[in-house]
Structures are given as C-alpha cells and as structure tokens.
C-alpha cells in the first residue's frame, strides 16, 4: 500500500468525524454546557468553601475556578472519548463500522486514524470552552494556551484509546449506561480534577492512593502544568504509557480473531 493511500485514508476518516461532529449540534452544545455548568455554577458556589493553597504549578493564590479548569478540560476529553466509544458501539450495531473494518488498510491504522480524528474533535471543544472561560475572566497565561496543545493531543489520545478499548469490550449499546456509572464518574471524581491530592489525602489517605492510581489524574496534571508552561514529566509519561496500553488492548480487541465485529451465534 502506498504512503499516499494512508494519508488519503486518514484524511477521509478525519473529515467524516469532523463533519459528523458539526452536524450533531446537540453533541457540540452538550460538550460545552457540561463543563461550563461546572465552572460557572459549581465552582462559583464552592469558591468560598474551598481554599486552594499555593501548589505547583501555581505561584500565587488562585480561585477555585482557576484550579478546576484543567480538570474540566480533562472532563471534555473524557466525555469525548466515551462519546466516541458510544458511537463506535452504535456504528457496530448499525453496521457502518463494518465499512471501516473491511477497508484494505491495516486495522491498527484505521483505529489509530479514528482515534486521532476523535482527539482533534475534542481539542476543538477544549479551545471553545477555554474561549468562553476567558470571557468570564478565568484565564491562563497567553503562551499557556499554545503550550497546552501538544499535551491535549496526548491526553486526548489516552482517553480516546480508553473509550475505544471499552467499545471493544462492551457488546451491546444498552450496556453503555454501565460505562457512565463505572468508568466516567469514578475516573472524574477519583482524580485531582476537583480537589488537589493533598487535600483528598487529608481526609482519606486511601482515597488519595486510589486517585494516584487513576490515569485521569495524570492527564489532568499534565494539562494543569502545560497551561502554566511547565512540563510535568511524571504526569505526561504516565498518561502516554497508559494511552499506549489502552490502544494496544483496543487493537487486540478489534482483531478478526476476537470477532468483536460479529455478534456471537450462528446466523
């Protein structure tokens, strides 16, 4: 297969994902309203109750809205990954996933292309969210918005790969509600998205240890540091390694030998 064919194929998959995203306006709105609600209602309410001391990467006292913003960026990417997972299960049940899987391109390439396209969509959502947050004076250093981009690619890929892995293991669309309960909420709440780990540790050392095992914590910290032009090596590499592991398992899950594209049973 020629290199240009791979490029054409990737472009085709990315174009379709972006077209679908913009045609599903409700999805776009939901992706924005959810974190904005947290930022403008939840965080505003908790501002007085929760004080955040000076911790890296912050060099001064910050408001709770500023603290929570990286977690909400992670939330956007987490929900986007799960949304992609949902649409992959839906596409598989409706049949259109078969068109992708019967392409002559290697299956790993098709899955990675889909993942990259989904990540691009999540990054668009993040920057629109940051733009709205900026209007409410919740802002980061200007250069931080640029420094954030490569980190968003890695965190988006990790969370997208997690969604892809879940889609390879969930056999029916009806079971997706379970993902919401058992994956999204624990991942979000058992992380440093809403509270710093030291604060969680003050209340429960066990809870802090659980949070430290959660790859979403590292994604959020990567984002937090990048917004302030700092590079958190541990957070970045844990995120990247988790992403590679999820992706390899997802590729395995979609191999013909696993037969995920075929419902079990004779026909």
């Amino acid at each position: 297969m020629r290199a240009s064919a791979f490029l054409i194929c990737f472009k085709g998959i990315a174009t379709r994902e972006v077209l679908r995203f913009f045609q599903q306006r409700e999805r776009f709105l939901a992706a924005l309203i959810r974190p904005l609600f947290w930022l403008l209602v939840f965080a505003a309410g908790f501002r007085a109750a929760l004080g955040v001391s000076i911790i890296p990467p912050y060099e001064t006292y910050i408001t709770y809205e500023v603290y929570i913003t990286p977690g909400l960026i992670g939330m956007i990417q987490l929900f986007n990954g799960m949304q992609s997972s949902l649409s992959m299960i839906y596409d598989r049940e409706m049949g259109s996933m078969r068109v992708l899987m019967t392409s002559p391109m290697p299956r790993w390439f098709l899955l990675i292309s889909k993942l990259l396209a989904g990540t691009a969509v999540s990054i668009i959502q993040v920057y629109v969210f940051l733009g709205i947050a900026f209007l409410f004076e919740i802002e980061a250093p200007a250069i931080g918005y640029l420094a954030l981009l490569p980190v968003l690619v890695v965190t988006g890929l990790m969370l997208g790969a997690l969604g892809m892995l879940l889609s390879a293991t969930v056999r029916q669309l009806e079971n997706f509600a379970g993902i919401m309960n058992f994956v999204i909420f624990p991942m979000f709440f058992l992380s440093s998205a809403l509270y710093p780990l030291w604060k969680i540790g003050e209340s429960s050392p066990l809870l802090r240890q659980i949070c430290e095992l959660n790859p979403f914590t590292y994604a959020v910290e990567s984002i937090r540091f990048a917004l302030y032009q700092q590079f958190n090596v541990t957070a970045f590499f844990v995120t990247a390694i988790a992403g590679v592991c999820f992706l390899l398992l997802a590729i395995k899950g979609y191999s013909p030998a696993k037969g995920m594209m075929q419902r079990k049973g004779p026909s």
């Binding site: 020629r2 064919a5 054409i8 194929c9 472009k11 085709g12 998959i13 174009t15 379709r16």
Partner: peptide, 15 residues
C-alpha cells in the same frame, strides 16, 4: 457523495 468519498478514502483512492 460524502458517503462515497469516505469509502473511496478508505481504499486510498486519490481525490
């Protein structure tokens, strides 16, 4: 057309 273009891309067909 968008559906057909997508399929053509999956086969690496130039525009």
């Amino acid at each position: 057309t968008q559906n057909l273009r997508y399929f053509a891309a999956l086969h690496g067909m130039p525009g």
